Simulated scan of single mutants.
Amino acid sequence: MKEITDIIKSYELALVAGKKMALATVVHVEGSSYRRPGARMLVTDDGQLTGAISGGCLEGDALRKALLAISQQKNKLVTYDTTDENDTKLGVQLGCNGIVHILFEPIDKEQTNNPIELLKKAVAKRQNAILITLFSMHSRTSDQPGTCFLHLETDKEVVCNCEGQELYNVLLTESAEAYNKADSFFKTFDLGEKKQTVFAEYLNTPPSLVIAGAGNDIIPLVEMTSILGWDITVVDGRAGHATRQRFPKATQVLVSRAEDVLSHLKTDERTFFVLMTHNYNYDLSLLKQLIFLEECTYIGTLGPKKKLERMYTDMLAEGIMVSESQKTKIYGPVGLDIGAETSEEIALSVLAEIKTVLNKKSGLPLRDKSEPIHNRSDQQVKYSESDKEEFLCAVTTALP
Rank of each mutant, 00 (worst) to 15 (best):
G319N: 11
P220H: 08
N113E: 09
E117H: 08
I99A: 00
N359S: 12
L67N: 05
I7G: 00
S349W: 07
A122V: 05
D46S: 12
G339R: 08
E85W: 04
V222G: 02
L191H: 04
R367H: 14
I219N: 07
L351I: 15
S285Q: 09
S139H: 12
K307Y: 06
G56F: 05
T112Y: 14
L134C: 05
D6F: 04
S377C: 04
R36T: 13
A214D: 05
T233Y: 12
V27P: 01
V78P: 03
N113S: 11
S32E: 04
H264C: 07
D260M: 06
P304L: 10
G300A: 07
T356V: 02
G60D: 11
D61W: 12
F149R: 01
T188P: 01
Y80P: 01
K355I: 14
G240F: 09
E295Y: 06
P365R: 10
F391C: 03
H278V: 11
H278G: 09
H138Y: 08
V274W: 09
K306S: 14
Y280S: 07
D155C: 02
S384W: 03
K288C: 02
E174H: 09
E269I: 05
D45A: 06
A52I: 01
E269D: 11
I219T: 14
M1N: 14
G51F: 01
A14K: 08
E344H: 11
A239T: 14
N97D: 03
F272H: 09
W230Y: 15
E223M: 13
A182D: 07
V170G: 04
A176M: 08
D6M: 05
L228T: 12
V198P: 00
E157L: 10
P333V: 08
I338T: 13
Q380R: 15
Y312A: 11
A14G: 05
D46V: 14
T83W: 10
V100M: 04
L77D: 04
H278E: 10
L228Q: 13
V43S: 00
E341M: 05
E157T: 13
L58W: 03
I219R: 10
D190R: 05
M41G: 02
